[in-house]
Nucleic acid binder design. Sequence first.
DNA 1: ATCGCGCAAATTTTT
DNA 2: TTTGCGCGAT
Length: 791
Amino acid sequence: MSNYDSMNKRQKEAVFHTEGPLLILAGAGSGKTRVLTHRIAYMIEEKGVNPWNIMAITFTNKAAGEMRERVDKIVGFGSESIWVATFHSSCVRILRRHIDRLGYDSNFTIYDTDDQKTLLREICKRLEIDTKMIKERAILSAISSAKNELISPVEYELRVMGDYVKKKISQVYKEYQAALKKNNALDFDDLLVKMVELFKACPDILEMYQNRFQYIMVDEYQDTNTVQFELIRLLASKSRNLCVVGDDDQSIYKFRGANIRNILDFESVYPEAYVVKLEQNYRSSKNVLHAANGVIRNNRGRKEKALWTEKDAGNPIHFKQFDEAYEEADYIVRSIKDKKKSGEADYRDCAVLYRTNAQSRLLEERFVMDSIPYQVVGGVNFYSRKEIKDMLAYLKTINNGKDDIAVKRIINVPKRGIGGTTIDRVQAYAIEEGISFYEALQQAEDIASIGKGFVKLQPFVSLIQTYRSKVEYYGLSNLLKDVMEGTGYIKELEESEEEDAEDRINNIQELLNKLIAYEEGKLELGETPSLSEFLEEVALIADIDTTNSDNNRVMLMTLHSAKGLEFPHVYMAGMEDGLFPSYMTITADDKTEIEEERRLCYVGITRAMEDLTLTCAKRRMMHGETQYNAVSRFVKEIPQELLDNKPQQSKQMVERYEEESFERAAFRSKPFETRSAGSFTAKKESDFDFELPTPGNRPKAVLKKAITKEGSKPFIAQNGGVMSGGGIVKGGSMGLGELPYGTGDRVSHVKYGQGQVVQVEKGPRDYQVTVTFDDYGDKVMYAAFAKLQKL
DNA sequence: ATCGCGCAAATTTTT
DNA sequence: TTTGCGCGAT
């Protein structure tokens, strides 16, 4: 029996409101999972709802697992028939059963991003699309957005009339979908899209599931995209018992298609909706909460709410600015060490959050140096490592010969002397005959064009055939062991000179362990382990799911990965304008982009329970060169009385910053011709509008609107244009030339007036000149930029 | 067929 | 700085 007395008034309201649409606006740390699980229990215990009719949808496997666990605990008997799953795994489950109605085979494979890229590359080659002009990534994200918006290839084509680039993308989209279907594969987006298609095409199936899922709950609703919205809308349209939980202030996945309007407009879509706001926070100290509120307040178009807590004020928010990024890392590590020593915190209580994965390197180095246990979340997913993907490709090939991508991945791994030309010819034959790549391989003898190449293909085909015949009686883990050894893959790694060869072998071993665990788990339940099922599980696993915090380690992760987690001690590193918020969003035309960054900051701050430390550095290496960054505007949005150190903003700093940013811009010059935006390439200065740099922003050159079709993203003046103190310097590289002055000469400078040259140092690309100015003292500057006049 | 060098690009990423 | 890719040389 569950106890509802321990809940606050609002929470109870949400729990007891079981019929009709319900929007729960749950602020960070307001106990929403608790509300959801209690709500389920209440429905079953008090309202007599059949567990079988309840569905709870989450985004991550981890969230689903946690929900499952808590529901099981509180509901007890019958809880296993509650459908608790992620969007994607729900779709897979349903599609496996009915996808034949859409003309797919029910043992379809799921393509991950890597597979998508491989397929895309093939198609671009076939369609003779120059991937330098239209970037692969751009195509992929265009296709993904289209799918997220439920725009079919045909519709897409109709919409893009006239635009050259989009027209090309439309062609690719069409081909890409055709190829997926031919390979009997679905990408991640497809899982949702096909589900919606199925429901729309087969009202009988839709009705079946509408009857089954009479009470639907969706977690993290602010992150849903259009397909997900539609999917839920369809499922709930009969019962209308739809409960969505979310926080518009924590919507940070717009770039992945999440539509914040889904949550903001919930009440207009469901006019009879009941709304509950959970604003009491049980996680953080007052200071942390006030800091978070101070930041998020600056966003427009949000549902007004303010978190409050009964907790004490707690520690002040720590803020520290360093000269160099490594000093920042150093400080964080030292601080954690101190806390551990004094017993204030254990390693597992601390997390370091940052904006970009690249920032983890510097931190890691320090952690290693001080031998402090840490764990990086994210970065390269275990399942996207090369060696793991290779092993899985073998298993996929053995499992489903229709997966061309998998077959091609391992046909020459380890090396079998099968090259691109042979593969292309087999592919051509396969297309001609309308068969899969693997089937073509089996008929290699008949392919006239490959001639003797057939000799190399034969052993590969028989290898796979042998494995296939073994699947039945051999057991999955034995099969994988056989692949590891039998293909010579492990042997190749053992003999390899590569530094990480041993890690790779360990990773494969780890995969084997996971397979064994899967197999044993199944056998314990009295079920038959199946290769397809294992592959499917693996395909839907993300890194965050496998991170267990049982280990006593400091957690390092991006702000995005931190969502949904909490830590007593949180460090937010790299609080710098240009890094966080990123240049991309500062310079974006779309003003709402900065708001998403602000939400990200809000998410970061609200992860902290007791102690929050914000750090930044004046200088940091980014993309291989030193960047000078000002303190993040977000730090300044925090009520300053909460900070133990106030961010400094002296006039000199601004001046120095401006100066250095000019110099850098000038230094990196390249001709205008090197830059292009979409289909247009800028050729001369007059193609740009220029904007002056401001502290925190690099100088900006924007393609003139008149020239581009719909405007374009601004150029940062690094390769595109050269700027100097307010004027435009010609494009073109600056090389080393003779200087018209030397040490001891009197010179004059536009800004600093007259002075004497005290030192001239030859740098890689320019001279560094030190001048003692009469009015300003010593200045070090680059000759090409400074344009000093000899007197 | 394979290797290796040079060039360009580089947020965030629940599945 | 790091990574990934394409192309030219073996």
